[in-house]
Nucleic acid binder design. Structure first.
Length: 481
RNA sequence: CGGGGUGUGGCGCAGACUGGUAGCGCGCAGCGUUUGGGACGCUGAAGUCGGAGGUUCAAGUCCUCUCACCCCGACCA
């Protein structure tokens, strides 16, 4: 049978597109730059949503919904914000067959309209903080798109909070960055680096932007989530004010933070291998697939009876299980098919197993025989499956961490920087005291960008690899999506 | 927006230079044999050859125009 997935080593970008197509996560749409998220891909996104939403609720946030359309004038109220977004806005100028008096912007993000509402809702310090999140779609007119990583329309959540003081707002900004990191590491099994964006890379309108950066399987970086401290920029633009205890009018300090369907792309690119997807059990739509095997008609009913029992036992144990009883496919085909779709664990049940009252378990994170366990007693199967799911989750995180660490290099000079980047790629860890112009030059010459400045670098003081100046600031540079 | 490429059953492609009744693989449907790592046989359905115009007795093939998509570079969750 023809190979449907290009090997990763041959062409990573092609591999990524192949996996997304073959695993039926998403497909290109008739509209250029947009994608259709198919049920399996959407279930994965629902897993991401569930993990994040739970954490948002636990940290005191409520969900709400704001409109898709934003008056043009709102976007124009905050200077940097307009400049940052105007090239990528989709604008509605005709409605109901008539030219609109004021064009409506299809939201690229909702700071402005939410700011407008906050100015009405917030009067007193007693109204603060306001902690709201919304799940929504947004549109940015991108020229160069890639499924999940960058599409013209994408799904995300955007949190928007308002606080009395800068300290509180900053605390919130960093708290949500921690929430993102916790989700990425524990649910998505993606090791991420928390850091601050440089002036050049920060969000348009923010005072400071923070990021979680992940390394993809080709050594490139991906910003998997961002959290912004907006200072009083939007409060001033939208007059979000409150009276403090001394009856004095003050501007609120606001934050915003977002994670998008890009996270799905990250999961694909961090864990996937030449066989296809490898999904972390916490997020996998199907955690366990059962494949029945038989030769003769007599064996069929016996085998199916046992697979049905196991399915029930696993479902009762709270495991997302699927029984693949298709008769038109051979077991071998099913093995490959479900591996390609990234199901973490497979249960094989054939006549031999029925006789011994046992099952065969195969884990996705380890190839072939190495990942198989034979003769697992039927009675203890659910317990063993649960253990293995935990192990697979842990193992995926370990593998990704080991990969990232193996491809992260501390460099001391620009020469070394270029050499390592060319020969190995990956993350370049440097002491950094350069300017935005230096950053631009590095990008031009090497295509690497400053991904983030580490929050608490363990290195201590050193010399900037570019300028030689003493600094305790440590940065990660990398090629990025 | 600059550079490169491709449009032919659902998908991947051949056919084009040299014009002469549209073909292959996969997939799909039916039947039978199969089933512990991507099964096989037989039968069958399915294509205005991206679009428009032109040359010609005759155009998937030659000419002109046009549209769309993909890939590589400048901006971005």
């Amino acid at each position: 049978m023809a190979e449907k997935i290009t090997p990763r080593s041959e062409d990573f970008s092609r591999w990524y597109l192949d996996v997304i197509r073959e695993a039926e996560l998403a497909e290109n749409s008739p509209v250029r730059g947009c994608m259709v998220i198919r049920p399996y891909g959407y279930e994965l996104w629902e897993g991401v949503k569930a993990g994040l939403d739970r954490r948002f609720k636990e940290t005191g946030h409520k969900n709400a919904y704001f409109p898709l359309f934003i008056p043009m004038s709102f976007i124009q109220k905050e200077n940097e914000h307009v400049e940052g977004f105007s090239p990528e806005l989709a604008i509605v100028t005709i409605g109901g067959g008539k030219e609109l008096e004021e064009p409506l912007v299809v939201r690229p993000t909702s700071e402005t309209i939410i700011g407008h509402m906050y100015s009405r809702w917030i009067q007193s310090y007693r109204d603060l903080p306001v902690l709201i999140n919304q799940w929504a779609n947004v549109v940015r007119w991108e020229l160069r798109t890639r499924p999940f990583l960058r599409t013209m329309e994408f799904l995300w959540q955007e949190g928007h909070t308002a606080h009395a003081t800068a300290e509180e707002a900053m605390e919130e900004t960093l708290r949500m960055l921690d929430v993102y990191a916790d989700f990425a590491i524990n649910d998505a099994a993606i090791p991420v680096i928390k850091g601050r964006k440089s002036e050049r890379e920060k969000f348009a309108g923010a005072v400071a932007s923070y990021t979680i950066e992940a390394m993809m399987g080709n050594g490139w970086a991906l910003q998997a989530g961002t959290s912004h401290y907006l200072g009083t920029n939007f409060a001033r633009a939208f007059e979000i004010t409150y009276l403090d205890r001394n009856n004095e009018l003050q501007y609120c300090h606001t934050t915003s933070w977002g994670v998008s369907t890009r996270m799905v792309g990250a999961i694909v690119m961090v864990h996937g291998d030449d066989q296809g997807l490898r999904l972390p059990p916490v997020l996998a739509p199907i955690q366990v697939v059962i494949v029945p095997i038989w030769r003769k008609e007599a064996e069929r009913s016996q085998v199916l009876e046992v697979t049905q029992q196991v399915k029930t036992a696993l479902a009762d144990a709270g495991i997302r299980v699927h029984l693949d009883d298709r008769e038109e496919q051979t077991p071998g085909f099913k093995f490959n098919d479900w591996e390609m779709r990234g199901v973490p664990l497979r249960v094989e049940i054939g006549p031999r197993d029925v006789k011994q009252q046992s099952v065969v378990l195969a884990r996705r994170d380890k190839p072939g025989k190495e990942g198989k366990e034979f003769g697992v007693p039927l009675t203890g199967a659910a317990t063993r499956v649960k253990e293995l799911l935990r192990e697979v989750q842990k193992s995926l995180l370990e593998q990704a961490t080991a990969f990232r660490d193996a491809h992260t290099h501390y460099v001391r000079s620009y020469e070394e920087f270029k050499e390592v980047l060319n020969e190995e790629g990956g993350f370049l860890r440097v002491h950094w005291a350069g300017t935005s112009e230096d950053e631009a030059r590095i990008q031009e010459e090497t295509k690497a960008t400053l991904r983030c400045l580490l929050l608490e670098p363990p290195e201590g003081e050193g010399e900037c690899f570019l300028t030689g100046k003493k600094t305790d600031q440590v940065a990660i540079f990398a090629r990025a999506y």
